[in-house]
Nucleic acid binder design. Sequence first.
DNA 1: TCGATACTTAAGCGCATGCTTCACCAACCG
DNA 2: CGGTTGGTGAAGCATGCGCTTAAGTATCGA
Lengths: 107, 107
Amino acid sequence: MFQALADPNRRHMVQRLCEGPASVSELAAPLQMTLSAVVQHLAVLEGAGLVRSQKIGRVRTCQLETQALRAAERWISERRSLWERRFDRLGAFLAENPEDPLEKNSK
Amino acid sequence: MFQALADPNRRHMVQRLCEGPASVSELAAPLQMTLSAVVQHLAVLEGAGLVRSQKIGRVRTCQLETQALRAAERWISERRSLWERRFDRLGAFLAENPEDPLEKNSK
DNA sequence: TCGATACTTAAGCGCATGCTTCACCAACCG
DNA sequence: CGGTTGGTGAAGCATGCGCTTAAGTATCGA
């Protein structure tokens, strides 16, 4: 999932898909690389559950799948807030105690 | 940044750092791999701005840096909400229009 | 029916990543 | 002082990743 978002080209594709569904070649157009490569990236995105796609006739149409994005977002925000809460408690502790009680390296 | 979070071991280290600062060997302890490897992962995390560390005596102490996490979170939530807004507009459109006005392939 | 178009699949190549080992240095501790 | 602890740096290696080329297949449009 983070793996999938790690590649700039893949993020670019995600960006594009935010603005609406697109065919494979539409995704490929701005990307200065082979269609083949794009398809491979697409496979990664689908594997990570970030994108869903279906083929109608000869064109495959891709859509963003927000579930996965939501999961990633949650993961990050959980850790962040966990750490920040800890940080706040520390701040509170320092605030209601004398300046620095542990002068290990005082001269 | 996403690259840095892409590795499970690195995420594990981040997880550990959420619960408070730690030395390199403390980070390494649960990770069934060489100290050397851990240091390399740490370098990646620092490179991504996810972790800050300073050496006192012979122990290096590491802390989480929330700025970067915040950035990643923002990136995701921006795309997600962009897409969801689009999705809602589409829903509204479909709601206030007859079932399917564009029968291109009608016989 | 013929030739574009829109992919699909497989093979291969070069570079990045994740690890290990080994040698090393700088505190700290008895 | 000497050994242990905590970390550093370089070299090497296996695997994975991103990409390309090349050779299909299936659909559409004239």
